[in-house]
Structures are given as structure tokens and as C-alpha cells.
Design a protein around this nucleic acid. Sequence first.
DNA 1: GCCTAAAATGAATTAATGTTCATTTTGGAA
DNA 2: TTCCAAAATGAACATTAATTCATTTTAGGC
Lengths: 190, 190
Amino acid sequence: MRPKNKLKLAKIRDAVVVLAGRGGLVGLSMNEIARKAGIATGTLYVYFAGKEELLRSVYWEIKQATAAAYFHRLDPTLPLKTRLRTIWMNALSHRREHYDEAVFTTQYYQSGLIGEEGRQETHRLFAALFDVLEEGRRHLILKEIDPILTACFLIAPAVEMAALERSGALTLTPQICETAWQLAWDAIKS
Amino acid sequence: MRPKNKLKLAKIRDAVVVLAGRGGLVGLSMNEIARKAGIATGTLYVYFAGKEELLRSVYWEIKQATAAAYFHRLDPTLPLKTRLRTIWMNALSHRREHYDEAVFTTQYYQSGLIGEEGRQETHRLFAALFDVLEEGRRHLILKEIDPILTACFLIAPAVEMAALERSGALTLTPQICETAWQLAWDAIKS
DNA sequence: GCCTAAAATGAATTAATGTTCATTTTGGAA
DNA sequence: TTCCAAAATGAACATTAATTCATTTTAGGC
């Protein structure tokens, strides 16, 4: 008769993400999560069967949102280079604006909690990127190499840039982001 | 009167690394470490004051070895491009051959255990790389951008390549490594 | 406004994990 | 060979964290 408070789910997710961003998955306790979310520990068990399910749920919520962000405003009629630039800028922006989420998902992915199936599913979420890279290779716009290798040189530096910005080692201006895109493009173009 | 068994230290380190490679820092218990190392839990406390000191010690041992590996056989009389290629290949090889260590150090770095001072010290270990990148920029061999950004595009893809190889998503042959170096070089060259 | 069933609570309980310690083992010195 | 001091052991202990549950609160139906 009494409905679940939708806001609480969001608060729980936020708490997990912020705490993971601070100290990683190590030492992330249900108690801390509840305190940060402003609810009682017992309430966590109204929404989730246990800690593992809670973390799993948060992981997939974030990953789906991240994948959506990568392909946001992607106009399929534009030239391939332009589309790739959009994806790259989306990826960089999303990482910068959701750095804590990235720390959480990276650690969850590397922990034993996810399982092989989960890893596969994670890759499937980003299949659209590989479609574009395949297309670029067919049209000889990109180098003739395994698209997975191309993706390495496209995405990994953007991820690292966001991490370095967070640590204070790198300052990112729109101009520097544009330059960085040039580097990424220089790497993968044929 | 009875000396510590030097071999045990190595076994402890190996146990930590292998277990971390499997399941990350989450759920890495002293009990498990001892079992994997083939010693009693109490013995861990003969060698280390506690879990934190154990992990810290392992972290620095690995990081120092990693930095040394990056700059292994680096002939300062060779041309800059050749020297960078050596560092890049060293980095890739070391990551591939010590993947579990990389998982451990990455997670330790992101956990609250390391502290700001530890992060700074970690960067200092790789200062020689930035020296080379600075030099390349001065001589207009590399793009005129912050060497930290250059380093992003040099190292991050190599790190990701090793991870993808481990997951089975990417096969690395000497030829593919050579091609990948070309991509890295294309990104950073002026 | 009352009733009800589910949400929410947080102290109590259970489970897991880090640390200690009384005891045994062992390598080297006398 | 004997002795000793330190290493090594692993069960016991202490601490911390996950989960449960008796109780209270609350949103919606009557």
C-alpha cells in the first residue's frame, strides 16, 4: 500500500558512486552507503537483496547511461570523421562529468563480481562504436587494423585525460580538447 | 638467530598479485593471501605490521620494478624516436607479462590507501619519460602540447591493449605490436 | 479520519576478516 | 651437540561489516 520512494534509489546510487570515487570499492560498506544516502541500513534491503545485487544494479544503470551518452546526438548522415569526433567528444565529456562513476565501473569490472557474461554484455553496449570503426576501415578512411585496436587508441587516451584532470595534473580547455581529438584522429586515420 | 626466509617475501608478493589479478582488491583477505603463499596467517605479521603495510610494500616494489622496466636498455645516444619506441615497447611488454601486477597497482592507486604523497611519488618514478617528451617537443619532433597529454596518447593505449589481450578480445603478434607503435607515433609526432 | 499493508528504522545478530599470542620449529652460534 | 633467539604456526580473540527483525512510520484505499 505504501509505494517505494523513487528518490531513494537515486540517492543510493549516488552514495555508492561518490564513495567509490573517493576510496574505490575497498572499504565500501553498507553502513557507509546508507549514511551517505541519508537512510537506514535496513532500508537498503528493501530495495536490494544484498550488497552484491546493489552493486550489480548500480553498475548496469551507469553502464547503460554511459553507452547512451557516447552515442548522444549522433547524426548518421554526417561524414564518418564527424561522427567519430562526436563520439570521442561525448566520451571525453561524459568521463569528465562522471568521473566517480567511471572509477566505480572500472573497479567493478575488474573485481570478480561481474563474471564473464557481464563482461560480454558490457562490450555489447558499445557495439555501435565498432560498427562505425568497421565502416571507416572498409572505406579506407581508417587504418586497416582490427577495430578493437583502433578503439584502444581512440578511447583509452580520453579516459586517461579525464583521470589526469581529476588529479590536477592536466587542465582541459575546449582548445586542448580539440587538440587532443587531433591526436586521436592522427593515430587512427589511414 | 634464525633469519627470515627471503623466499617467503616473494611468495607473499606473488600471492597478493595473483589474487588481485583475479578478483581485485575487494575480498583480498589476509587468510587468502597466506593460503595462496603457502604460509600461516600469523607469519604475515612477522614480515609486515599489518594489511595496509603489506599492500603498501607490494605496491612500491611493483612500481619501482615497472619504472625500471620502462627504461630498460635505453641508449641515450639513439635518436629520440627510437628511444620513445623502446620505452613504448618496454611498457607494452611489461604490462603484458605482468598484467596482474597492473590490476593491483591500478586499484591500489585508486583506493584511499595510497594518499596524495604516494601519488606524487608514483609520478616521479616515471619522470624520465617526461624528460624525453619535453626534449621531443623542444626539437619540434613531437607536437607542441603539454607532455602529459602526449604521454596519455603514448601509454594509455598500450595499457588497454594488454587488458584486451588478457580478456581474449585482442591477439597480439610482434607485427600487430609494431603497427600499434605506428599508431602511437602518428598521434604524437609533429 | 481510520485502517492496512508495505516502507522505513536501527539495534541485535550473524558472518567474515584482521590481529594476537601461547606454542612449536628451526637455523646458526657457542 | 646443545642452546637460544627469532621465525613460523594456527587456533583464539577482537573488530568490523553484512544481514535480520521486531517495531514504528506512512501513503493510499475505504
